[in-house]
């Protein structure tokens, strides 16, 4: 049991290459870890945040590396369905993002509208991770990575990134 949790723990705590304050488990990228104690192998399933997420290969090779350090051969599978959603992000992950200066994602339901796309610069409240004010403005739909938008706080005037709810 101790051995099993060691390899699972090593894989779960791998940091996301683009947002290193959050682990792949806390982000919801890590979908399953199946350990075979006899064969010393581990089957790992991961899912991309976005179709073109360039971090997937780095994550996969890190999983192989960490498993190997624990004496296991890892077989990493990428799975698209069900599609990743920010709702899979853990509370701990959200808190880590906030402390790092990235506003964590809100609930997805708001963005799932099926009707004509509402045209509005900002249609949801995002709280500034620096000062806690809710008066913030979207500067750009897209930030430094596909999963983030760029915003500015109208109270403390600091720019910050928002993890988009998808």
């Amino acid at each position: 049991m101790a051995v099993e949790s060691a390899v699972a723990q090593a894989i779960s705590s791998i940091p996301d290459p683009e947002v290193p304050v959050v682990s792949i488990a806390d982000l919801g990228i890590l979908r399953s870890v199946d350990i075979d104690e006899h064969a010393h192998t581990v089957a790992v399933t991961i899912t991309p945040t976005y179709s073109g997420c360039p971090a997937m290969e780095a994550i996969a090779s890190r999983i192989v590396f960490e498993a190997d350090r624990q004496g296991y051969a890892a077989d990493v599978r990428t799975q698209l369905s069900p599609a990743w959603t920010t709702d899979w992000m853990s509370e701990q992950g959200r808190e880590a993002l906030r402390r790092f200066g990235i506003a964590p994602p809100g609930a997805v339901a708001a963005g799932e509208s099926r009707g004509p796309v509402p045209v509005a610069i900002s249609r949801h409240v995002v709280t500034c991770p620096h000062c806690g004010a809710s008066d913030t403005t979207e500067i750009s739909h897209f930030g430094s990575t596909a999963c983030k938008a760029l915003r500015r706080c109208n109270a403390c005037l600091e720019p910050f990134e928002e993890f988009k709810a998808i």
């Binding site: 991309p48 976005y50 179709s51 073109g52 750009s140 897209f142 596909a146």
Partner: peptide, 16 residues
């Protein structure tokens, strides 16, 4: 910001 936005859209499509 638009350089980044259109680059991100391109990446989504490339992934698809």
């Amino acid at each position: 910001e638009e350089d980044m936005a259109l680059g991100n859209l391109a990446l989504d499509l490339l992934g698809q």
